[in-house]
Amino acid sequence: MKVGFFITCLVDAMRPSIGFAAIRLLESAGCQVEVPMAQTCCGQPAYNSGDRATARALAEKLLDEFERFEHVVLPSGSCGGMIKAHYADLFAGDPELSRRYALLQPRVHELTDFLVNVVKIESVPGTGFSGRVTYHDSCSGLRELGVKAQPRSLIGQLPGVTLSEMAQCEQCCGFGGTFSVKYGDISGAIVDEKCGHIEATGADAVVLGDLGCMLNIEGRLRRRGNERTRVIHIAELLAGEGR
């Protein structure tokens, strides 16, 4: 199974270890993984800011680079949601781009959804973490892609790891891309509430599937004086790198 891996610009710039962990997971599942080196952004920041021209150009670029693959996988519900739920809007009015996108769209997968529903793996290599975790459902992955049971199913395959659900696990962390910049006070209040729910579980770590949420939650936990609770991307946990 040939997979084109979309790194996401945030992972590439801020936490490339997540990308490497995801690739190791895919390879351990028997996938042949290729990373197009000219890839950049999915266009979500531009799209959310009303810059449709830039978003359209980036969407066309991604289509050119990835339409040859049997599957496209990415470690982010946010970018996955942009590609699967919003590219049709960007390509509306262009029959040829719309046709090409219609062929690609069903082959785009968030990482955990791909592992559970396409590859159907029954074991994961992760052995680097033991303890109690709680899971934060990132907004786009949950609401645009239906990612909910998939990561929990995979966590359940890890020996020595116990999942404790937090209150309001589906509530936004307050990041929301440029929302956290434009409405800093509101964003801060939202993530502060999220951190309270995380801490109330007594979990050793909070696990999640979007780096934007990771950075937001981890930053707030540390500013609250919490140096104990770890913040781990699901790819790193499953790949055995959540030590």
Rank of each mutant, 00 (worst) to 15 (best):
G50A: 07
A149W: 00
L115Y: 04
L115V: 11
G176H: 01
T229Y: 08
N226P: 15
I7S: 10
L63V: 05
R132A: 12
N117W: 03
E96G: 15
L26S: 05
T40R: 03
E67R: 01
D94S: 11
N48H: 10
Y101N: 03
F66K: 02
L103T: 07
L58C: 11
G141F: 08
A57I: 07
V124M: 08
D113Q: 15
S130D: 06
K120R: 13
F20G: 10
V181C: 15
E65D: 06
D94N: 11
R107M: 01
V147W: 08
R222C: 08
G156W: 02
G212L: 08
L62I: 15
Q157M: 13
H109G: 12
A205Y: 05
E218M: 15
K84S: 13
D210E: 11
L208T: 08
P16H: 06
E27G: 03
C31D: 01
F6G: 03
L154N: 07
A205F: 01
L208E: 09
G80Q: 01
A92N: 09
F114M: 01
C172R: 00
G160R: 00
T40D: 02
L111S: 06
A149M: 09
G188W: 01
P45F: 10
F6D: 00
A57M: 12
I232H: 00
P75H: 05
Q168E: 11
P45D: 09
A203E: 02
G196K: 02
A13E: 13
G242T: 04
L104P: 10
A46P: 12
C42Y: 08
M37S: 13
T112N: 05
V116P: 00
H233K: 11
Y47S: 13
L158N: 10
G177C: 04
G81T: 11
V108K: 02
G174Y: 00
K61C: 10
L25W: 01
Q105C: 15
C41K: 04
G128L: 02
T112L: 03
R100Y: 01
S17N: 11
S17T: 08
M14A: 15
E218Q: 15
G4M: 00
A22C: 09
G146W: 00
A235D: 08
N117F: 04
N226S: 09
V206W: 07
Y47T: 10
T8F: 11
Q168P: 14
C172P: 15
F69G: 05
G176D: 05
L26D: 01
K61L: 05
L163P: 15
I217H: 01
A22P: 08
T54N: 03
A57K: 09
V118E: 01
H197Y: 07
M1E: 03
L103W: 06
I232C: 04
K148H: 11
L158G: 14
Q168F: 09
G81Q: 01
V191R: 02
L211P: 14
M1P: 08
C169M: 15
G174L: 09
R230S: 07
G174N: 04
C195M: 09
P151T: 04
G141Q: 07
E65P: 07
C173V: 12
A167K: 14
P75D: 10
R99M: 09
C31M: 02
I83N: 01
T178S: 12
